[in-house]
Amino acid sequence: MATAIAVARLDQLFAAVMLFGIYSLLSAALFVVMDAVDVAFTEAAVGAGIATILMLSALALTSRTQRPVPRRRHWMATGVVVVTGLGVIYGTLDMPSYGDPNAPAHLHVVPHYLQQSMAEIGIPNVVTSVLASYRGYDTLGETVVIFTAAVGVIGRLGVVPGITAYVKSGGMQHHLILRITAKLMLPLILLFALYVQFHGDYGPGGGFQAGVIFASAFILYGLVFGLEDATAVAPSIVVRVVAACGVLLYALVGVLSLFLGGNYLDYGVLVEDPTQGQHIGILLVEFGVGMTVAASMISLFYAYASYKPEE
């Protein structure tokens, strides 16, 4: 919380962004405390990782300091904030206490997930089964959201395949230690990403987190060896096709189950045994999610890194 206040007060944008990273990491720790391991994983990777990188690259492309806030806005903002804040606090007064096992939220829909999902879907991580199966349609939507963002950023910043003029090619190439460490790290990161991808059924993890980790490997590569080398490994056009295919894979799994006589996204019909079908379906859609997320993140990075202000 102290970090958040500091962020609010700082005029130095660079420091503010770094502090935001710390804030995000702290909230990830908070999520672990509150038993949300999957969420913590994601928040650490996304909030502290990707979002901060994006903010830093945006800063690099713009200016680093902020002008002080005029007094008039200050009061207006305080007014809005106080009204809303009091509103929420008023609302909390009738809420069940924190951690109360008898709160309605724990009694209505969720017990079904906790008690039945093992029998119906057959994987231990309830978060994964709710995510990919019970509320699979939400997750499809989420995949589309990230895809939309990638499309938007490409549309705005524009990645022209092959043009990498802005990043001084091989920015850090002469740092021998960096290069070697990076080379050592890369396979490990990629391996870890794959592990997270396919282990999501049993422990925390899944397509989304894996995608982010996978992308971060590429971003690391791009930072150390320069954008040219990174685009040589994964040309931006390929990345975009992969992103599109991920969404399509997810959606097509849905159509497939439609043709096999089930409802849209009903994995139970994919093979003879419904539980087995659920399993396969979840693996497939998680893979689709992973593809889209990784590819979208990489293309976001390309877009920022190769952006050249039009004169």
Binding site: H108, S133, R135, S257, N263, Y264, L265, D266, V269
Partner: peptide, 13 residues
Amino acid sequence: TYALGGWAAPWGI
């Protein structure tokens, strides 16, 4: 009404 994923509401969407 149409249940996505074959899960009846309120468990599914």
